[in-house]
Write a protein that binds this DNA or RNA. Structure first.
Lengths: 302, 302
DNA sequence: ACGGTCCATACGCCTAGGGATATCAGACCA
DNA sequence: TGGTCTGATATCCCTAGGCGTATGGACCGT
């Protein structure tokens, strides 16, 4: 691609003159005097190397060369004006695409409200939503596959990423309805020591997993993992079948299953945090916009 | 269509930098030092109103706005370079379209050779050939519907048109083979005084028609028109059926029909001219090229 | 801590190009 | 033949933008 060394004004003058076919009128439309317009056209013709207009007494006509150039000139000008407008729209964050990764469980809590407020404020922005667990979200942020992550237990060792807590919620015990402890309103953690656990595999979210096993450790035992499941939906389903118990963020109570009971735990100060994550120094204005929306969208705490 | 006030160099710099993602390399490819490139980009970003590149330590990246602008910039640049090249090609007469009108009878004589030499010399030029009689050709030249006419008996009262004789040929008598005069090698015009004539209607070519009736007048009679026909092919066919006789340019001898005889006439100095016609002041270089080709293409005289 | 890399900034220089006004030249018309 | 319309030319002015060299400042490796 070589660089055609033309001032765009000349092209614009050319297009206008091609429409008016009258130097005086075209100059008026361009807001300049007639002699400068003659110069512009002349310079352009010099650069092309051929006449673009045929000046007959009384009428100005396009030459074949001019007719050939006209559509290209028009296209170039509209391409540029449109491109500039689009770039400005994207630059100001009025339009564009924001790619968001989110943990499946958040589809029940923070995600809907967040999307609603954002879409309301930026209707021109397309949101690409990808369900993914915590660890892949971190990787995808680094990959620039997503721009925003919505995850649990933000990891600490991520200097290039920013995190902001959106929600902090307690843990609950997840029990089969038939489990003896389901009769209590509150379950002490130590009481779960002997039950098999259904847990998330460590790979999908090391922080949350470690958090849970840490809670158990504080209560004096190491949970025995009977089964792994990647989604909380599945965890609850497995608990319902009696395969074991679990510890989960309170918001998963929204998953209603007849055979599952959720109970507060003792000690009750253990909380898990949901955070938005983004690349520090991400120039995308939509990221800033979303973070601002997060600041104002304070969804119902569970 | 508003005028985006951007030097194209900045766009070019932008595109190259977007490909290289490295100021030093891009500057080298552009053949300038690095600081000027920084300036170009900065100026462009100022005009857009947003950053186009994200300068992170160690890596340069396109911002979303930049990603949005890039394809438009590329399109605009290629449109312009292509458009300029096309305009230059057309301006120099290497490519383009030439619209030619021609009298049907000339398809048998001057037209093929002319087209052949022209096409050989300007293979990039498209030739649009339209069969039409003389009067419509004159109108089409004024309309700018055609650029070149190939016609008989160029009219004199056309100040805006140029004419150049391509071929000058005698008239011949067209007789049914059974006609008594077909027995002679030469026919005196006066001998045709009593035969009905098949002639072209005056509207399609007043000059030629007037020429023929003029010849008859000189021989002392007014031809009695038995039938009109627009094409010489038809004239011959009608003569063959015995409907009458005719006078025609010698080149129509190429139309071979069993029942038709062509005979020289007395006096034999009457000739009809075939000419190319064009608009004087036509800026189209192809017209000049074709006229030059006519000068050299001297087809076989009939 | 110290060069090396990479981009930005700061001058200074220069030209191209855009603008205006005044004037000229040809065509056309009354 | 003189007025009008239209486009081209001639000057002059101004500034935007392009380039270079020199320098600063952040970051990264050893």
């Amino acid at each position: 691609m070589d660089r055609p060394e033309l001032p765009l004004q000349q092209l614009h003058a050319f297009v206008v003159l091609a429409e008016e076919l009258h130097f005086g009128h075209a100059a008026a439309r361009l807001g300049i005097a007639q002699p400068p317009l003659s110069q512009q056209i002349r310079r352009l013709e010099d650069k092309v190397g051929h006449a673009l207009f045929h000046r007959a007494p009384g009428r100005v006509t396009l030459t074949p060369a001019g007719r050939e150039l006209l559509p290209a000139a028009r296209r170039a000008l509209t391409d540029l004006t449109d491109g500039l407008a689009a770039a400005r729209a994207v630059g100001s964050g009025r339009t564009g695409t924001l790619r968001i990764g989110f943990a499946a469980s958040l589809a029940l809590t923070v995600l809907p409200g967040l999307l609603r407020t954002f879409r309301h404020r930026f209707p021109g922005v397309r949101l690409d939503i990808h369900e993914m667990t915590t660890a892949p979200q971190i990787a995808a942020l680094h990959d620039r596959t997503i721009d925003i992550g919505l995850l649990r237990e933000p990891p600490a060792d991520q200097p290039e990423l920013g995190f902001r807590t959106v929600l902090s919620e307690p843990f609950v015990a997840v029990l089969p309805a038939a489990h003896p402890l389901a009769a209590q309103r509150t379950v002490r953690l130590a009481q779960l020591a002997d039950s098999p656990f259904v847990l998330l595999p460590r790979e999908v979210g090391p922080q949350l997993r470690d958090r849970i096993t840490g809670l158990c450790a504080e209560a004096g035992f190491t949970p025995r993992t009977a089964q792994h499941a990647v989604e909380w939906q599945t965890v609850c389903a497995l608990v319902e079948t009696g395969l074991g118990v679990s510890l989960a963020p309170a918001s998963i109570r929204r998953i209603r299953l007849k055979g599952v009971a959720f109970r507060r735990i003792e000690p009750g100060d253990a909380r898990t945090r949901v955070a938005v994550a983004w690349r520090e120094n991400d120039p995308n204005p939509l990221v800033a916009h979303l973070l601002a929306a997060v600041g104002q969208d304070r969804p119902d705490r569970v």
